[in-house]
């Protein structure tokens, strides 16, 4: 069985990743407000900053990203992660 992967959001909330399809789904399951739209990696709305940990990409991002930015709809946690979600 996979090790538990913790997701920390804005240093204020922490929960376990429950094998949801994407990080966006995991955030939605915990009712974390995160901007989103296309779920296909091309609108760029669900861009967040990854401050700790690594993620695995299941689809390519089609929007410009900085090195520490990820699209929630395109990836899942590979390790315990910490993310900064902008206010929405």
């Amino acid at each position: 069985m996979d090790a538990v992967r913790r997701i920390r959001v804005n240093d204020s909330l922490e929960f376990d990743y429950q094998q949801e399809f994407s990080l966006l789904d995991a955030l939605e399951a915990r009712a974390v407000p995160v901007l989103h739209s296309c779920r296909g990696g091309y609108c760029g709305c669900c861009k967040v900053r990854l401050s700790e940990g690594r993620v695995s990409w299941h689809q390519d991002s089609l929007v410009p990203l900085q090195d520490d930015e990820i699209l929630c709809c395109c990836c899942t946690p590979l390790t315990a992660i910490a993310i900064n979600v902008p206010e929405c």
């Binding site: 739209s37 296309c38 296909g40 091309y42 609108c43 760029g44 089609l62 929007v63 410009p64």
Partner: peptide, 17 residues
């Protein structure tokens, strides 16, 4: 709308590059 979301990421890419 689905197409336009893709197009706008194209122009954003060009501007960012």
């Amino acid at each position: 709308a689905r197409d336009e979301a893709l197009h706008l990421s194209g122009t954003q890419q060009m501007l960012s590059l």
